[in-house]
Simulated scan of single mutants.
Amino acid sequence: MSVVDTVQLLELRTKKAAGLIAMLRKEKAELQEKFDLVNTHNAELEEYAETFSTSNKLIEESISKAMENLSSIDGLDDVLLMDDTALELEAAEGFTSGDALAMEEDIDLDSLLDDSHTL
């Protein structure tokens, strides 16, 4: 191999090395951007977790105080619900659990319109 061939080979390898360095720098910059984004999201999640934990403690304390207040009322558990109230609570519970959807009664639209007030 002549000196000229050796110099050309060296020049080619130098160009390849420079191209590889440029590509690695670009990849490093992209990875740094992604890392910064992940770091930002991580900080946001840490703040959210801290806020959630604080809120959760406040809710637990409020529930505990409410339970203590209710426990301090003598005879509260001995109070009977009125029949109408018990029926209303039962109907509300049934409605909440989906019993209203299971009703097979057809609604008569004409009777609803007859009962409505005119504007």
Results as ranks from 00 to 15, higher is better:
residue 115 D to S: 09
residue 10 L to M: 12
residue 117 H to E: 10
residue 64 S to Q: 13
residue 85 T to W: 01
residue 10 L to D: 05
residue 17 A to V: 08
residue 80 L to M: 12
residue 9 L to W: 02
residue 57 K to S: 06
residue 86 A to K: 15
residue 26 K to S: 06
residue 18 A to D: 05
residue 90 E to Q: 15
residue 54 T to V: 06
residue 62 S to Y: 09
residue 66 A to Y: 08
residue 64 S to D: 08
residue 88 E to C: 03
residue 48 Y to P: 00
residue 61 E to L: 10
residue 117 H to N: 03
residue 4 V to H: 08
residue 1 M to P: 05
residue 95 F to A: 09
residue 40 T to R: 12
residue 69 N to W: 01
residue 66 A to G: 04
residue 76 L to Y: 01
residue 60 E to R: 11
residue 47 E to F: 10
residue 91 A to E: 15
residue 76 L to K: 00
residue 19 G to C: 07
residue 45 L to T: 08
residue 43 A to Y: 04
residue 22 A to C: 06
residue 21 I to C: 02
residue 37 L to H: 09
residue 61 E to N: 13
residue 110 D to S: 14
residue 15 K to G: 04
residue 38 V to L: 15
residue 44 E to Q: 12
residue 47 E to I: 14
residue 49 A to C: 10
residue 22 A to L: 09
residue 45 L to D: 01
residue 51 T to A: 15
residue 62 S to T: 10
residue 104 E to F: 00
residue 93 E to S: 06
residue 44 E to I: 02
residue 69 N to M: 04
residue 84 D to C: 02
residue 48 Y to K: 15
residue 47 E to L: 15
residue 55 S to T: 11
residue 78 D to F: 01
residue 103 M to G: 03
residue 94 G to M: 03
residue 53 S to C: 08
residue 113 L to A: 12
residue 57 K to M: 02
residue 81 L to K: 08
residue 35 F to W: 08
residue 84 D to V: 11
residue 44 E to H: 06
residue 39 N to D: 11
residue 70 L to E: 08
residue 69 N to H: 05
residue 85 T to Y: 05
residue 103 M to E: 08
residue 38 V to Q: 13
residue 6 T to Q: 08
residue 81 L to D: 03
residue 18 A to P: 00
residue 85 T to M: 09
residue 20 L to C: 04
residue 2 S to Y: 04
residue 57 K to W: 00
residue 44 E to D: 12
residue 110 D to M: 08
residue 23 M to E: 13
residue 54 T to K: 07
residue 90 E to G: 06
residue 16 K to W: 00
residue 65 K to Y: 10
residue 79 V to M: 06
residue 106 D to Q: 12
residue 89 L to E: 05
residue 64 S to M: 07
residue 66 A to C: 06
residue 89 L to H: 04
residue 68 E to K: 15
residue 67 M to Q: 14
residue 39 N to L: 09
residue 35 F to S: 12
residue 113 L to F: 04
residue 119 L to Q: 03
residue 9 L to T: 09
residue 83 D to H: 07
residue 105 E to M: 09
residue 106 D to H: 06
residue 47 E to H: 13
residue 33 E to Q: 15
residue 105 E to K: 08
residue 16 K to C: 00
residue 26 K to A: 04
residue 90 E to F: 10
residue 112 L to T: 05
residue 101 L to Y: 03
residue 22 A to K: 13
residue 16 K to Q: 14
residue 69 N to K: 13
residue 27 E to R: 13
residue 22 A to Y: 06
residue 96 T to Q: 11
residue 47 E to M: 15
residue 115 D to W: 01
residue 33 E to H: 12
residue 43 A to M: 10
residue 115 D to E: 10
residue 2 S to R: 06
residue 102 A to T: 11
residue 62 S to Q: 13
residue 50 E to H: 13
residue 3 V to W: 03
residue 23 M to W: 04
residue 91 A to K: 12
residue 3 V to H: 09
residue 67 M to R: 15
residue 11 E to M: 11
residue 81 L to A: 15
